[in-house]
Design a protein around this nucleic acid. Sequence first.
DNA 1: CATACATCCTGTAGTAGCTACAGAAACAAG
DNA 2: CTTGTTTCTGTAGCTACTACAGGATGTATG
Lengths: 131, 131
Amino acid sequence: MMSIGTLSKQSGVHIETIRYYERAGVLPKARRATNGRRIYGKEDAGRLAFIRHARELGFELVSVRALLALQERPELSCKAASELASAQLAAVESRLNRLTILRDELKRMVRACKNGRVVDCRVIEALTNMP
Amino acid sequence: MMSIGTLSKQSGVHIETIRYYERAGVLPKARRATNGRRIYGKEDAGRLAFIRHARELGFELVSVRALLALQERPELSCKAASELASAQLAAVESRLNRLTILRDELKRMVRACKNGRVVDCRVIEALTNMP
DNA sequence: CATACATCCTGTAGTAGCTACAGAAACAAG
DNA sequence: CTTGTTTCTGTAGCTACTACAGGATGTATG
């Protein structure tokens, strides 16, 4: 049981953003105290942290909702859940591949620099022609 | 040497977005034909594809500019380039870690489903308490 | 109890990064 | 020369926030 301010501090998400997420439907309508203020439990902090990570990883709110749906609809058939998860999995693996390539190129540059050599940066070539 | 339409088809980036990138300064001001239309070379397609990948990976345009700067300023000292690359590298590795965790959880769910078991989804827990 | 200050509320407006459309000019085909 | 496509500039709309304004409520202190 905590206020929106406490939740904000705990999750690192701005108060305004929390209210926005409620409006946008990625957070459920918060329970209200008798004075009208929003009250949250600790599971909300988890959900919020998840949304933040997913957003930072490049998923839009539509995809975040899809991922959250996996968590919150145990009545979903195995098949439906698996299809949802598979689709997200494909997107995640594609990102992973490209991030790995980018990382390797950045690493190469830093390493070359340590050896005192002039760096030639090929981040563009590295990512341009991707599978 | 190609028109904005051809570049758009080749790169998969909308014409309007290409013009927006020029305005936003992630693409250089395009050369113009005598009739005023923009002309591009094939290096522009590469740069554009790179921007698109970087954006999909969750980098904002400010970071994209930083990455592009690495490529396009050979006059940068080894130290400066290395610092720029290191900073981006840290951001990339953080994303890689979280994406890997998310992927493993999605894989686990799909696998459990194949075995006919009811899935319990733990994507939230997986990403909530991250280093 | 009164005053002060923090926290919350709703609502609206601003920002980044696109995306879409309107209206005009230029080009290309028949 | 007409028709249709492409491009131009400019503006308006969209998503996902972010930042206020103005008001109500809560808490701490003299």
